[in-house]
Amino acid sequence: MTTIGLIGSGNIGSTVARLAVAAGHDVVLSNSRGPQTLQDLVSELGPKARAATPAEAAASSDIVVVTVPLRAYQDVPAAPLAGKVVIDTNNYYPERDGVFTELEDGSSTTGELLQKHLSEARVVKGFNNIWFEHLRSLARPAGSADRSALPIAGDDAAAKQAVSELFDSLGFDTVDAGPLAENWRTQRDTPVYVTPYGAFGELPGTPASAQVVREALAAAKLTAG
């Protein structure tokens, strides 16, 4: 099984960790406050989980999920992520992150920002368009009629394949939204953001098939600008 590293262990990170352990993967959790702050979560997850520093989580894992606020993306350690597949969950919230001119004018996307920072890693955008509670509640075994799909974007085909295989093991199909330059189609306030899986705050959520996700991505393309 794959070892999944988490840089950031908040709502999305801890949910991914729970799904990963349930699927048989090992997880290495980290955050900005130190491994000692993650002991309760590690105890909950059991023997397949441990806590570490962000650099240790990066170095010891096959796939690393970066799930920190966008304002902190430059704090992610670059050297231990060289050559690694990195899943970027970031979304841009100016009121939280400050204003990023290149995101405001459309000259870059959040995924491209992280890829530039992690120049030797292989960044794939994922997990950024779904509320963490729906991520938990909508996971289904492969072949289930009510299985949901998640969009990804990335510039490296092999990295996207690795992420698709991971998502499959966690309980989701995958829809390829294109290169990182297209990951704006999965960001906040786009048709594929949160609502295909049900209303924010309401459980258990609504399964969103690959076709539903493809149509939402296409709608974003039609309404951009």
Rank of each mutant, 00 (worst) to 15 (best):
S144W: 03
D176K: 08
H134F: 02
G143C: 03
S164T: 15
E165K: 14
L170G: 04
F167Q: 12
A157Q: 13
D176N: 06
P151C: 13
D156I: 13
L150E: 03
G126A: 12
A159E: 10
E182L: 07
G178I: 10
F132A: 14
H134W: 03
A159G: 06
P151Y: 11
N129T: 14
N129F: 09
A162C: 06
F127A: 05
F127Q: 09
L180H: 02
G154I: 13
G154C: 12
D156P: 09
L150M: 07
L150T: 01
D156L: 10
A153I: 11
A139Q: 11
A145T: 07
W131P: 00
R147A: 05
S148L: 07
D173R: 15
A145D: 10
A153T: 12
E165M: 11
H134G: 00
I152Y: 03
A181T: 12
F127L: 14
A142I: 15
A153W: 11
A121C: 05
E133I: 12
L180Q: 04
P151Q: 08
A153Q: 13
Q161Y: 00
N183Q: 15
D155Q: 07
V124C: 10
A121K: 03
V163A: 08
S169E: 15
P179F: 04
K125M: 04
G126V: 06
L138K: 00
A153H: 13
D168Y: 04
R136K: 14
L135E: 01
L170R: 08
D173I: 13
A181Q: 07
N129I: 06
N129M: 13
R136N: 10
A158G: 14
D156S: 09
N129W: 02
I152T: 14
N183C: 15
A159K: 09
D176T: 04
S137R: 05
